[in-house]
Simulated assay, not measured.
Amino acid sequence: DRERAALARQRAAPPAATTGWWGRLGFWRGATGAATLAAVLGGWVAVGVQQQGDARIAQLQTELQTQVASQKRIEYVAVLSDAQGQARGPEILVTFDAQHQRLTLQRVGGYQEASDKSLQLWALPPDGKPRSLGVLGEAPLLQLATAAEAVQAVPALAISLEPKGGVPGEGGPTGPVLFSGSLIRSLNL
């Protein structure tokens, strides 16, 4: 009977108090809830960061494509110098960007036409009949829209001195040819 009485006393006695925070059920429930919340927030932040990263990568790719598309691709180059053979050096540097179909002319010499005259650029094709590519303004840098077909297979360019506004019609240069040079295909395509 002693054993029964001891067992009955144990059952009737309140549970022994645990010592410290690790023995409290409320603490562990709170810790579990906090860990679950932290995991959910961490996953949400990770997805947001990844989406922002993907968006930034797409933006950078678009910017790079735009930059590449806007870069000049010089396909042809010409240095036009004195057509009469007087050693004055280069006067005009000509480049052709096939992608944007633009001729760029840069005055590098000191020649300046009179106010009542214009410089006119001519393509000198193999058949010998010059074709006008445009009238140059007085600016040191000029761009002319030109189709690739107008430049390809043209061995040389020339610039003539013409009345203000250039030669009317397709008759060819009427004034003296001041500058000329070979048009060569660039190696940096």
Rank of each mutant, 00 (worst) to 15 (best):
Gln86Thr: 10
Arg107Tyr: 13
Gly30Pro: 06
Glu75Met: 14
Gln65Phe: 08
Trp22Asp: 12
Gln59Val: 12
Gln106Gly: 08
Arg24Glu: 08
Arg73Ile: 09
Thr19Ala: 15
Val94Tyr: 05
Tyr76Asp: 08
Pro15Gln: 03
Gly85Pro: 09
Thr36His: 11
Arg73Met: 10
Trp28Ser: 04
Trp28Tyr: 07
Leu60Asp: 05
Phe27Tyr: 11
Val49Arg: 12
Leu64Val: 13
Leu119Arg: 01
Ala123Gln: 00
Ala55Arg: 09
Asp97Cys: 01
Leu105Lys: 01
Thr19Tyr: 09
Gln50Asp: 15
Arg88Trp: 12
Ala78Pro: 02
Thr95Leu: 01
Ser115Pro: 03
Gln120Phe: 00
Gln120Val: 00
Thr36Phe: 11
Val45Asp: 11
Ala38Cys: 10
His100Glu: 05
Ser81Met: 11
Gln67Ser: 10
Ile92Pro: 05
Val40Glu: 05
Gln65Cys: 09
Phe27Ile: 08
Arg73Asn: 06
Gly85Met: 11
Pro90Leu: 08
Val40Met: 07
Leu103Cys: 00
Trp22Lys: 11
Gly30Thr: 12
Leu103Lys: 01
Gln86Ile: 10
Trp44Gln: 12
Thr18Ile: 15
Gln65Met: 05
Leu41Thr: 04
Arg56Leu: 15
Ala16Thr: 14
Ser118Asn: 05
Trp22Ile: 06
Gly43Ile: 06
Ala55Phe: 02
Val68Thr: 08
Gly23Arg: 01
Gly109Leu: 04
Val79Gly: 04
Leu41Ile: 08
Ala46Tyr: 13
Val94Gln: 03
Lys72Phe: 09
Thr19Ser: 14
Gly128Asp: 04
Asp54Lys: 04
Gly42Leu: 06
Pro14Phe: 06
Gln59Asn: 14
Gln51Leu: 14
Gln84Pro: 06
Leu124Trp: 03
Val77Lys: 09
Arg102Asn: 08
Gln50Thr: 14
Gly42Tyr: 09
Ala17His: 12
Ala83Arg: 03
Leu105Trp: 01
Leu119Gly: 01
Gly48His: 09
Val77Asn: 04
Gln61Cys: 07
Leu103Thr: 00
Ser70Trp: 09
Val40Cys: 05
Gly89Ala: 06
Ala78Lys: 07
Ile92Trp: 10
Leu121Asn: 01
Gly20Lys: 03
Ala55His: 06
Ala98Asn: 07
